[in-house]
Design a protein around this nucleic acid. Structure first.
Lengths: 213, 213
DNA sequence: TTGAAACATGAATCGGTATTCATATTAAAT
DNA sequence: ATTTAATATGAATACCGATTCATGTTTCAA
């Protein structure tokens, strides 16, 4: 009885699978959780919804996850990695920072359109445990600031407070994504990117455009 | 028994108070709900938390509100009105659109700092009932687009897709507010406004500043 | 003053759901 | 083939919190 209890406790953590079968099952559950959280939302989604979609019994969930919240945590981490990897690949060919911003924004909009769960999972995580959310954006922001610093050094953008800029840029992408990639696709991504590109190249103020390369 | 049931049902709605005392109580409950939702979050905040803070019994809550969700709905409406009224007043003296954007951003940051509940209540509403959130931003956006259209007509800003711009601008304010007004106040609002103002006046691209008035 | 409507109470109800557990089944090693 | 660890099961548990309701108290008009 005692040994059983200890075994349970040791097992309480993530319980990494030790078998191919286990790995498959765990992955199925995680994907099912992403879908459930993404469509129903974190609170409305029950463990039952997740396990039903994964095709396993409710108890199986706890073989691999310590609870609902840990699952959300892991999902945010995974989805963040995926997104970042995707964006980095997409902006790889850019000649300069402004072009990278254009490519990055377009890629982000498209990615959100194709993976709508990302937005909801991430935003909801904010209210389940704020540190999940903060960590995500602070990590994202740190990398972004580094890129802007490089660009400043290369003379591709004006000197300025790059940290503030980064949060502004993340806000732009976030809201445009919500409005034009998730809610209504009534404006072509090209138009959106062109509008924001014009903002970055010329600002909002009137007056002659700057020289183009 | 039947008449009682009917009376209950008729009463189920908002149950507008008919007495000064009732009005006071309702207002106390609403303010308590704002605080509870703002600090604990919508899901964690229980009716008991609200009524305790308001100094009334749990049942009293249902004398004035149909339920937890309706309360959130009403809060978002109220807080939205307040914020908009405040911002309109703050940008009233602006000479042109760019100055209005500066004043508006500074006022928004300050308002968020002073009323931190706004952010959380609004953002969480998104996942309780998306229409609450959409309505809020679409209403906000409509007014904003009108202002940019005016500014375009007056030649204060470059022609462009003002709807896209508005969503970008709302995103900027939102993220800067979250980062610099709610999370860490490590950067003076003046610096933030100056950075964003430079973005609006000159873009990110290098090259000579435009003429100043 | 009095009676009815409005307001207030708080304990009980009631539904829901995250988590546990005793019990099978399956996979790999000896 | 046998044994043991890993996986899987799903009903039972256990808790939580939104809502209700029978009852008491206050307000206010007549």
């Amino acid at each position: 009885m005692n040994s059983v209890a200890i075994a349970r406790i040791d097992n309480a953590g993530p319980g990494a699978p030790k078998t191919a079968r286990g790995a498959r099952t765990r992955a199925r559950i995680l994907k099912a959780a992403e879908e459930a959280f993404g469509t129903l939302g974190y609170h409305r989604a029950g463990i039952a919804d997740i396990t039903r979609a994964a095709g396993v019994a409710q108890g199986t969930f706890y073989t691999y996850f310590a609870g609902k919240e840990q699952t959300l945590r892991e999902l945010v981490r995974d989805m963040g990695h995926q997104l970042r990897a995707h964006l980095e690949a997409e902006i790889a060919g850019a000649r300069d920072r402004l072009e990278a911003e254009e490519k990055g924004l377009r890629a982000f909009l498209q990615y959100l359109h194709d993976n709508p769960s990302l937005y909801r999972v991430l935003q909801e995580a904010q209210f389940v445990d704020e540190t999940i959310y903060r960590d995500y954006y602070e990590a994202f922001g740190r990398g972004y600031v580094r890129m802007l610093a490089d660009a400043t050094r290369k003379g591709e953008i004006r000197p300025g407070n790059n940290e503030v800029r980064v949060w502004a840029l993340m806000g732009i992408a976030n809201f445009l994504g919500l409005r034009y990639a998730l809610w209504e696709q009534d404006t072509p991504f090209d138009d959106i990117v062109a509008t924001i590109s014009d903002l970055f190249r010329n600002g909002l103020a009137p007056g002659g455009d700057k020289e183009k390369s």
